[in-house]
Each structure stands twice: as structure tokens, then as C-alpha cells.
């Protein structure tokens, strides 16, 4: 196996997941929260791919592709929500969108 071992990949994946979590926690613009969510999902994908190679098992890569499809769906619905919020002229701020009254 050429290059860095699995633990390096896992360390990077963990760092990416932490970065994304930080973004989700501190940002208030829902668009940037969605972008940070993408980083979290990509960290998970990197861990899946690295462990798939480590155990010589293809299920990890299949799982990574499924995660990609779910991420695309999540972006589709999330951006639809952002557009709907914008159309109703509510503030694009997750702190101020804390009630479900419309």
C-alpha cells in the first residue's frame, strides 16, 4: 500500500468532521450551515473510503456513494427551504427561525 496509512486518513476525516461541526454550531446563515454540513458528510465519506481500502471490502465505497446521494437530497430540500424562507421575507438567520409559526 503506497502512501499514508489508514490512521492518517482517519485523522484528516476527524478534523474535517470537527471543522464542519464548528461551522454548523457558530454560523447563523442557513446557507453556510448547509455548506458546513457538506464538510461533515465529506469527512464521513473519507473515513468510509479509507476503511474500505483498509479492510479490502467494497461495502465502504458503496456506503460512501449512498452518503453522496443522501447529501445531494439534503441539499435539494435544504435549498428549497432557504428559497421558501426568502420568499416569505423572513430573516435568513437560524437563531431567528426558532419558531415553527411560519
Amino acid at each position: 500500500m503506497l502512501g499514508p496509512g489508514t490512521s492518517w486518513y482517519l485523522a484528516l476525516a476527524g478534523f474535517l468532521f470537527g471543522t464542519g461541526a464548528l461551522g454548523v454550531l457558530i454560523r447563523r446563515n442557513p446557507l453556510i450551515v448547509l455548506l458546513s454540513l457538506e464538510i461533515m458528510l465529506n469527512g464521513g465519506n473519507l473515513a468510509l473510503v479509507a476503511l474500505s481500502r483498509h479492510w479490502r471490502n467494497g461495502a465502504g465505497q458503496i456506503f460512501a456513494l449512498s452518503v453522496m446521494a443522501v447529501a445531494a437530497s439534503e441539499v435539494c430540500v435544504g435549498l428549497g427551504l432557504v428559497v421558501a424562507i426568502h420568499r416569505r421575507r423572513l430573516a435568513l438567520d437560524v437563531d431567528r427561525l426558532s419558531e415553527l409559526r411560519g
Binding site: A69, S73, V77, G80, V83
Partner: peptide, 12 residues
């Protein structure tokens, strides 16, 4: 999942 998300996006 992709089909449901597409329908949801269109409705939203």
C-alpha cells in the same frame, strides 16, 4: 430517496 427529495424540492 433521490426521487422523494426531488419532489420535495419542487414542492418547497
Amino acid at each position: 430517496v433521490l426521487l422523494v427529495a426531488a419532489v420535495g424540492g419542487v414542492i418547497l
